[in-house]
Computed example of a mutant assay.
Amino acid sequence: MKIQFTILSFLISLSCAYAAKVDTVAVASKAMGKSIKTVVIRPDQPKQQKMPVLYLLHGYSGDYANWVNKVPAVKELVDRTGIMIVCPDGGYGSWYWDIKGDKNYQYETFVAKELVAYVDGHYATNSDRSQRGITGLSMGGHGAMYLAIRHQDVFSAVGSTAGGVDIRPFPNNWEMAKRLGSYAENPEKWNQHTVMELTHLIQPKSLEIFVDCGTEDFFFAVNEKLHEKLSYLNVPHRYLTMPGGHTWDYWSKSIHYQLAFFSEVFSKAAQPIGKQ
């Protein structure tokens, strides 16, 4: 169902203010034989309190520090929601895929396996999948959906903001052909690496899904088609459109809606069954 919803009650209801702590860590990737810089933003709360975790992915040509530097409000949102945010470096144009035969591009394994294990091993997280989600912008929006669909045992909730959720209309862009080969010669490989062709893998009641995109964004059309396909397949999801283009101005607004969604999902999952 396409929705518009307000974050006003969300912000008003969360009045406690702390001081979010920001760590920059180097996480070893055995799959790639190198360390990957990652920003961890955690609320200032009692150490024994287990935190839900949201993995927040950057876009093409971005890096691990994009979100915390360009949208400082994420620190306030961490304080308000009690959700720890983890922003890994996704490489230059990785699209968060594992590319067979290229050890420099094993980002699916890194994010969905190695990074999750590191975070749960080094921080006071709630390691149940019901308290773990993933989202991102642009390339990271596609990456979040791609990883969540392929690792439904790891993530219970997924978001995408202005995501390139179907890569096939852009065969000559963003170095994708360097990873997959040309679309003309490798159409099946492109189908296997695009979110639009993975929707049939979503298991009933497995993923909470929230997709948003600006109406002036060059990815708006593919997000509309993803919404239509999910609706056709009877996959429950939330879909939000707002005025805006493929810019940090839009993303700095949309992150509030994304965090409101994940806060609701994690809080509901944490309640005793009889009280939901």
Rank of each mutant, 00 (worst) to 15 (best):
Y55I: 14
N191E: 12
K34A: 14
A112V: 08
V195Q: 00
M51V: 14
M32T: 09
C87W: 06
G164D: 13
Y257W: 11
A65G: 10
H227M: 09
Y64F: 11
S15T: 11
D128I: 07
I83N: 04
Q106W: 14
A117W: 09
S267F: 15
R129L: 09
H256V: 15
K189P: 05
R150N: 14
R179N: 00
K34D: 10
H256G: 13
I134T: 08
M139K: 01
K34R: 15
Q271I: 10
Y239I: 11
E76D: 14
D44V: 05
F220N: 10
D79Y: 04
A270H: 09
S130D: 08
P204N: 01
G133N: 05
D249M: 10
A117C: 10
T109P: 03
A65N: 11
G245D: 08
R42G: 11
L180H: 00
G133V: 15
A17L: 07
N126L: 07
A177G: 01
Y107C: 10
R129Y: 13
G101H: 09
V165T: 14
D128R: 11
L198C: 13
L230S: 06
S267Q: 14
A28W: 13
S231L: 13
N234R: 09
L77N: 00
N173S: 13
L201Y: 14
G214Q: 03
A270T: 08
D44W: 01
I209Y: 15
L8M: 07
L180W: 10
K253C: 14
V195E: 03
M242V: 15
L201Q: 14
A260W: 08
S127A: 12
K229W: 10
C213Q: 09
V78W: 09
I12Y: 07
M242G: 03
K189N: 09
V40A: 02
F218R: 09
V119D: 14
V111D: 13
H122T: 06
R179T: 00
G133W: 07
V40F: 07
Q192E: 06
H193L: 04
M145G: 01
T215G: 02
G214W: 05
T215R: 02
H58P: 03
V158A: 04
Q45E: 13
M1H: 14
G82T: 00
S35D: 13
T194S: 01
D166P: 05
H58N: 13
D120V: 07
T215A: 01
